[in-house]
Design a protein around this nucleic acid. Sequence first.
DNA 1: TCAAAACTTGACCATTTTGGTCAGGTATGT
DNA 2: ACATACCTGACCAAAATGGTCAAGTTTTGA
Lengths: 141, 141
Amino acid sequence: MKLTSKGRYAVMALVDLARFDNINPVSLRDISLRQGISLDYLEQIFSKLKKNEIVKSIRGTQGGYVLNKNPNDIKLTNIFHAVDEKVKTVQCKKESKRGCNGKATKCITHNLWDELEIHINTFFDNKSLEDLIKNNKETRV
Amino acid sequence: MKLTSKGRYAVMALVDLARFDNINPVSLRDISLRQGISLDYLEQIFSKLKKNEIVKSIRGTQGGYVLNKNPNDIKLTNIFHAVDEKVKTVQCKKESKRGCNGKATKCITHNLWDELEIHINTFFDNKSLEDLIKNNKETRV
DNA sequence: TCAAAACTTGACCATTTTGGTCAGGTATGT
DNA sequence: ACATACCTGACCAAAATGGTCAAGTTTTGA
């Protein structure tokens, strides 16, 4: 059970972005240098963030990326969803409340995995980019 | 972020085992049939569960596996730990509170990942095999 | 006693996912 | 026109996943 680096990088990059956002567009090159993430890889990630309307792009010299929403309205859920970082505990479909592994009954631990998924997603739903920026400012000293 | 089938199977098998345990040792063959898990794979899993003293083995005809502890003392944490299903959110070492990616400072989202790990592990620490058996009995009707 | 049931061990392997790189673009400000 | 920065998609190596296969050893019941 681990977080992929795509999800982790996306959050790191957005926190970085949010800190400089209000002045100018932030170029991926800068984020790449500051966070130590490959520029090529960042481009893949931001392409998805853009499709999901989390950021806007500004082309040309002095261009870069800008947040497309209030940091308070960007939850971890949104970010992870954008880069296909999803929480998966079961293979059996949720909808089919019966018949998990081709069997007639629900698998005996089905409820458990559902609970777990909800538990994790709750965390993601409640945490916003705003929270992270605040927290970061405090810790920076 | 997903649960591996090794962890899932381990829990499923143990719940199954716990339900028949008090009468006789339960053979992997039976569990395999009931839960639809490959016998060979189950053997790998139970070998680890045994090393971690979660189950005991009884060889020979009519042999099988038996719980080695009270179901209430077997937490999900123990099971997952036994089969190497660990929660991993960061690569940077926890101990090195500074210098995450070869940088001088902690990575800006370090605290977040720590929080997340704790959040998930809390769930695992609190859930025991006993809870799952109860839950299962209730749902069976 | 001997065969069958069941545990034991470890090598092996195909497929998928991960975590990127590389090579080209295209748009735009100066 | 040129540098900067976004944009797109192909490609790839390595690791993890989810097993299978083979060859035992131990114990019991007939």
